[in-house]
Design a protein around this nucleic acid. Structure first.
Length: 807
DNA sequence: GAGTTTGAAACT
DNA sequence: CAGTTTCAAACTC
């Protein structure tokens, strides 16, 4: 099964998509193939690159070195589960041996009690059939492991409808409920019959399906592979939940849900078994704090997260952003300390940021996908909300945004990962009511009325402070007392991918995608959506208070937060684009959904424009996404900056396509080359071009332009100086007025004016009387006027002095 | 500000 | 791929 359709693969950057390398690094080699029937047919699983493995870790931060070790992997072959950590560790794995219809799997949940490290110990071994689940009955209940963590019975899986219940995972003993979607009926063919968890103290999550161990908590049922777990976390505890659904290669329509990204590797290398990846998407409601009720994560739900669930997710950490960088880093959004006030998280992020949303047709089920989880460093590890929603036959959206503003954002670094994870720190004050709502998110009615969503399906919106990518890197994890929260998943996912680094560093193809871009899934196949946000967005949005992540469901988002997200203008650096205000468009017929519209072409929302019937806004997300897709269909690089670097030896910047001017001589702004202040190149098809280096016309224009610019600058400087002087004058005179003092001009009363005029007339008569020339008369009048003014000023000064003395 | 010109985008 | 139409910005008056 292909996790990502070829279309998506072609579009998404390899760096992002290539998860195999990362998985290889992180995951120990699988010694034995998964016992599934499919395993033999297929080679080693290629882990699906999941930047956001759902990981639930209850462990305090550890030293970096420990972090590396902390990561444990579960091999499908291992049936033993070892959860262990000095701190609270939760390991949940479920693998199904898989019968096509009956789900059998092992689920191990261990919670090491604080202070009793059981590193290296296998806490629980659960037979593969331990938690059999049937399509009809998709509920797994995981009980808290015994204090010693060795009791096999520590983890209990129960079938209850389609819910996976994880209870007693944390010190607080708050249960985590994972609800499996009803659609999650297909038998899982996951290979991993068992899981082996090697954990260091304060370790967490390791899940592997298939031959390759995958870090993260993973539950695999015969029909589905899913899991999510969240548990209360101590400060700096990281909870990651990876939800993946695996299906036999033969099975059609499997969906893979990853919390964080991903592009499936070439299907060629994927094995049917492991890779499987139909991922169940749904909601995850987790109760992380003692006070709060258990949270339930529903996977595979069509409409997943309700606002409440989101809010609950707000309490929970959401991992939304993946951004490839030179240095691998994972940034996740961390929940705020329990006591911290919960911030409203209702802002549609994707829209606000203009993120790219890619709805990708899910590749054939034959390509296996392996969910890989990345290891997070202890330093960065903190309560993390990982939201991964995978939907079956529904678009998925992944939102990855380098967010950072402490304390709300924390960075998680994942060794070997080139992506940044941002931990959103949100208040964990989610109340029971919210939790309840979240659990009932399946009911559309529970969804708060919201603005039109991009998709009719589940949506998740989070508002997070945005900071420059650089800032994100510097984010320091802060202790958190609130448990990490699991993200809700739905069949329709929206993903925002915001590279912390400039797009060029990521991959050129990614730059082709405009914010809000949606790659529609092929008919009959699962959908995956990606919301891609270029790093430029981050910088451009620095001034924005919040960035809203939104997916299609019913989170109501304040329209007021419609934030401008801009892609870099052609040939201009982000700083340049941000430094000057964007010109408002005046579109009347295109609805601002065609490239005629500069706003749309630049990946921006219309804001303060003069357009008519504008659809380039939050209120028309779906239309906008369709338009983006249409543009990409016509031209895959439609949203790629037209001004790029030319070939070697050529100009540093040149138009990617060249212009086609015929009448303007390429010396007017009609010409895109001239407009970008670059010369035409060999690829231009212009007629009568005068926009070349030696062109006298061009030089003349440039000189004129330069001169005009200088004049403008001078005028601006003069105005500024004048304004400053006036301001200074007012400042100095104000005290005199306020203190009752009189300015000289206040003495120019009617009488004084008349007297002055008389003096001036007298001078005029005098000049006339002596037949003086007009010039002499004017001089005499002016001199007299000067004398009058001096007398007035002198009188005023004297009066003021007298007043100050007397008063 | 209205009207014209221009060339990219969209369409056929 | 070429020709035509549509569109909105650039430009002129």
């Amino acid at each position: 099964m292909d996790v990502v359709s070829p279309e998506l693969n072609s579009i998404l950057p390899d760096e992002i998509m290539d998860t195999e390398a990362m998985a290889m690094e992180e995951d120990p080699p699988a010694e034995t193939p998964a016992p599934s029937s499919h395993s033999a047919a297929e080679p080693a699983q290629v882990p699906m690159e999941t930047e956001v493995p759902e990981i639930v870790s209850l462990c305090p931060a550890t030293a970096p070195t420990q972090k590396t070790e902390a990561l444990t992997t579960l091999t499908a072959t291992d049936s033993t589960l070892c959860g262990i950590s000095a701190g609270t560790q939760l390991v949940v794995t479920s693998s199904s041996s898989a019968g096509p219809k009956m789900a059998t799997g092992t689920v191990a949940v261990t919670t090491a009690q604080p202070g009793s490290p059981v590193v290296g110990q296998s806490v629980a071994k659960i037979p593969a059939p331990f938690a059999p689940t049937s399509p009809a009955n998709h509920q797994l209940i995981i009980n808290k492991v015994a204090a010693d963590g060795k009791s096999p019975a520590a983890a209990v899986l129960k079938q209850e409808g389609q819910k996976l219940l994880v209870t007693g995972l944390s010190k607080t003993g708050q249960p985590i409920v994972l609800a499996l979607p009803n659609t999650w009926s297909k038998p899982a063919t996951s290979q991993g019959t068992g899981t082996d968890v090697k954990t260091q103290p304060t370790q967490f999550k390791v899940v592997s399906a298939g031959t390759k161990p995958v870090i993260g908590v993973q539950a695999v049922s015969s029909a589905n592979q899913l899991l999510g777990s969240s548990s209360p976390l101590q400060a700096q505890q990281l909870k990651t939940v990876q939800i993946t659904k695996k299906t036999p290669v033969s099975t059609a329509g499997p969906m893979i849900t990853k919390l964080i990204i991903t592009k499936a590797l070439n299907n060629k290398g994927l094995t049917s078994q492991a890779t499987v990846t139909p991922v169940v998407t749904g909601r995850v409601l987790t109760q992380t704090t003692p006070v709060t009720p258990p949270r339930t994560i529903t996977i595979g739900e069509t409409i997943s997260t309700t606002p409440q669930s989101l809010s609950s997710s707000s309490s929970s950490n959401s991992k939304v952003a993946i951004s490839p960088l030179k240095s691998p880093s994972k940034v996740t959004v961390a929940a705020q300390p329990p006591n911290s006030p919960q911030k409203p998280v209702a802002v549609p992020l994707n829209v606000a940021l203009g993120q790219q949303i890619l709805t990708v047709q899910q590749a054939a089920s034959t390509s296996p996908a392996k969910a890989g989880s990345s290891q997070s460093t202890a330093q960065t590890v903190k309560p993390v909300q990982t939201v991964a929603v995978g939907g079956v036959n529904t678009p998925q959206f992944k939102t990855i945004i380098p967010l950072a503003t402490p304390p709300n954002v924390q960075q998680i670094q994942v060794p070997g990962s080139r992506f940044h994870y941002v931990r959103l720190v949100t208040a964990t004050t989610g109340n029971t009511a919210q939790t309840a709502n979240a659990s009932t998110t399946t009911n559309p009615t529970t969804i708060q009325p919201a603005k039109p969503m991009m998709m009719n399906t589940a949506a998740v919106r989070m508002s997070v402070p945005i900071v420059p990518a650089q800032t994100v890197k510097q984010v320091v994890p802060k202790p958190m007392t609130s448990a990490a929260q699991v993200v809700s998943s739905s069949q329709t996912q929206q993903r925002l991918i915001m590279p912390a680094a400039p797009l060029p560093q990521i991959q050129p193809n990614l730059t082709n995608l405009p914010p809000g871009t949606v790659l529609a899934p092929a008919p009959g196949s699962g959908n995956m959506g990606y919301a891609v946000l270029p790093a430029q967005y981050v910088t451009q949005l620095q001034q924005s208070t919040f960035v809203t992540l939104a997916s299609s469901s019913g989170f109501s988002a304040p329209s007021s937060i419609q934030t401008q997200a801009r892609l870099p203008l052609n040939g201009l650096s982000p700083s340049e684009t941000t430094s000057r205000p964007r010109k408002p468009c005046n579109c009347t017929k295109s609805q601002c959904l065609k490239l005629y519209c500069d706003c749309f072409a630049n990946g921006e929302f219309c804001n303060n424009c003069n357009c008519v019937n504008c659809f380039n806004n939050l209120d028309h997300e779906s239309d906008r996404l369709k338009a983006i897709k249409a543009c990409l269909d016509r031209n895959p690089v439609a949203f790629k900056p037209k001004i790029g670097k030319g070939k070697e030896g050529e100009s540093e910047r040149r138009h990617s396509k060249g212009c086609n001017c015929k009448k303007s001589g390429c010396l007017k702004n009609y010409c895109e080359c001239y407009e970008a202040k670059i010369m035409c190149s060999s690829i231009c098809k212009c007629v009568g071009c005068k926009n070349f280096e030696e062109s006298p016309e061009r030089k003349t224009l440039m000189h004129l332009a330069d001169a005009a610019e200088v004049r403008v600058q001078q005028q601006t400087a003069a105005k500024t100086k004048l304004s400053s002087q006036i301001s200074d004058l007012l400042t100095r005179t104000t005290p005199a007025i306020s203190s009752g003092g009189k300015l000289p001009y206040t003495f120019v009363t009617k009488e004084v004016a008349e007297a002055t005029c008389d003096c001036l007339l007298e001078q005029a008569r005098k000049a006339e009387r002596y037949n003086q020339p007009q010039t002499v008369a004017e001089r005499l009048i002016l001199e007299e006027f000067g004398h009058c003014l001096r007398r007035i000023i002198s009188s005023a000064a004297k009066a003021k002095t007298d007043c100050s003395i007397n008063c």
